[in-house]
Design a protein around this nucleic acid. Structure first.
Length: 316
DNA sequence: AAATCTAGCAACCGCCAAATT
DNA sequence: GAATTTGGCGGTTGCTAGATT
């Protein structure tokens, strides 16, 4: 039995397509339409496998294909859909007009997956991270829940929430269990406050007092924080809500003394991963709960080493 | 300047499912 | 209903250009 090979390799050319071959394929399809790939190469005068012709047409030659830089919106869509669907690139591509599954797959493998890996996404310990069957993605799911099929509720959780869950895990692993187990705080973070690229945002949640929120404008805060105490001044009150320029580094230093920078998120493509409060369902006993907000270029995760829980997000 | 390494990407391969015979 | 064909999908490979040593 067996199906006959879609194409025999006898005498057929492999490797990169030439401009002449492209033109032959385009001309043929324009004239006769696509399909019938088995016999198309011969009819078109190509020494190529039909399958190769189909791929070349689908991924590069068909009209309207968008190539090159992915927009932040596309990044966001890919990340969210990958979390939801796993490595079903064709399904993901249907949500990105004129992008091919192959390009999305390559982009994921070359860029987006590394971003997750860099921030510890390979150590997912909360449920909800997508792990499609047969998926060879490097994400190592360590929580037993993750090995189970996703519940509908979990599937609906956004990729952004998952991302933050991963961050929380990463942060916890880096600094050890924090004392305070916090519930999610309501959003008082100034996401529209005009903070700038490479800002550092720290969200401290003292267990017995209303949250205080501060932020800094210093690309190198992780290296510069040497002062001992976390202050209680709420820098948010002193800051021009339209700009971060007024926040002085010395205020920052005193405000975030003893904080430890544990990770850096780079190149998140200016994408704002907005989180709905109900999406973040982390409950690390004796650990920490991360806040919610947007992730941006050069974000820095900062946590304190006292009993404060810090969900930290930089933003543009 | 040459050798080596690395990242990105185009293309191939094997498998699968739907369609057709 | 079985066999076969076809198109599609996802994983992987290998080439190439740029970066690094």
């Amino acid at each position: 039995m067996g199906r006959t090979p879609f194409c025999s390799s006898d005498g057929l050319k492999k490797g990169a397509w030439t401009a002449e071959e492209d033109q032959k394929l385009i001309s043929y399809i324009q004239k006769h339409g696509k399909g019938g790939w088995r016999f198309l190469p011969k009819k078109a005068g190509l020494q190529r496998c039909g399958k190769s012709c189909r791929l070349r047409w689908a991924n590069y030659l068909r009209p309207g294909i968008k190539r090159g830089d992915f927009t932040p919106e596309e990044d966001k869509t890919i990340i969210e859909l990958q979390a939801e669907l796993g490595n079903r690139w064709a399904a993901i591509a249907r949500h990105l007009p004129n992008r091919t599954d192959n390009e999305i797959k390559n982009y994921w493998n070359a860029h987006l997956k590394k971003r997750l890996a860099n921030m510890g996404a390979d150590q997912v310990t909360v449920s909800g991270a997508a792990s499609s069957s047969g998926n060879s993605d490097s994400n190592a799911v360590t929580d037993t829940e993750c090995a189970k099929p996703q519940s509908e509720a979990t599937k609906q959780r956004s990729a952004s929430a998952l991302l933050l869950n991963k961050l929380a895990t990463r942060v916890t692993q880096c600094v050890g269990p924090l004392q305070a187990s916090q519930t999610l705080q309501q959003p008082t973070m100034p996401f529209n406050g005009g903070a700038e690229n490479s800002d550092i945002f720290c969200h401290r949640l003292p267990s017995s007092t209303p949250e205080s929120t501060s932020w800094a404008d210093n690309n190198n805060i992780c290296n510069s924080l040497t002062m001992p105490e976390c202050g209680t001044t709420n820098a948010i009150d002193e800051r021009d809500s339209s700009s971060s320029a007024g926040v002085l580094n010395d205020i920052v230093a005193s405000e975030f003394a003893s904080l430890t920078c544990v990770d850096e998120l780079s190149d998140w493509g200016n994408t704002n991963y907005s989180i709905e409060p109900e999406e973040v369902q982390i409950d690390y006993s004796d650990s920490m709960t991360v806040g919610y907000g947007g992730l941006w270029d050069d974000d820095v995760i900062v946590v304190d080493d006292n009993d404060y829980t810090v969900g930290s997000l930089g933003f543009l």
